[in-house]
Nucleic acid binder design. Structure first.
Lengths: 103, 103
DNA sequence: TCGGTAGTTCGACGATCATCGTACTACGAA
DNA sequence: TTCGTAGTACGATGATCGTCGAACTACCGA
């Protein structure tokens, strides 16, 4: 039950370039969309992706280090949640704009 | 005076991945910010950038092909304008969010 | 017509990146 | 404790990307 939170940048440490660069990759964008659809958080493995587990972990790390998502442990599972509040505070409208894209 | 418009994607041809990937580069983000400050358009060479002319042309091409800016000729000059309306229609709030970043 | 100016195109090069397989850690169940 | 599951870390590899200089095109003024 949400025992530990993996290292992530504070709100004031988040940089736009890192956020945009992280979002500019199809697989990562898919992950972000999946998280947006599940406000309660999603277990990494539950998102269907055309890559192996190690690549998946790689992308999740990039998203976490960019400040886009937060990950906490739950047994052997890792639950990821979109950092909506932080992103909205820093770049109001950005997430909404991206998620409103046709596909 | 504004004789020709360089090839660019129609609004419905613009893809989010391309837009985000284009914006996720420091030099290109600088260009976009400069264009946002000058709604009337900016001549490429007027933006101060830490790169050579050829690299500058390269970045402008990527931004144009992503659908972020529009370029028309004016004699030997090329005037670039941010495609605010198109971007706002496709991804409402995205530009505002990005431009509101501290730096 | 002849520069000169503004910008693009074309390789080329080095750096970064996405991907993978393998090995590893951490946890829960039997 | 032993096994299976969930996920990470570590190279390695091939592809993409940012950068540059040099050569080229287009336009304007003298």
């Amino acid at each position: 039950m949400a025992t530990k939170v993996l290292p992530q940048p504070e709100r004031d440490e988040i940089r736009v370039e890192a956020v945009l660069q992280a979002l500019g990759e199809p697989v990562r964008l898919t992950i972000v969309r999946a998280l947006a659809d599940n406000p309660a958080g999603v277990c990494c493995g539950e998102i269907e992706l055309p890559v192996t587990a190690s690549t998946r972990a790689h992308h999740l790390k990039i998203l976490r280090e960019a400040g886009i998502l937060s990950t906490h442990t739950d047994g052997t599972r890792r639950i990821s949640v979109l950092r909506r509040e932080d992103l909205e505070a820093l770049y109001p409208g950005l997430l909404t704009g991206i998620l409103s894209a046709k596909q």
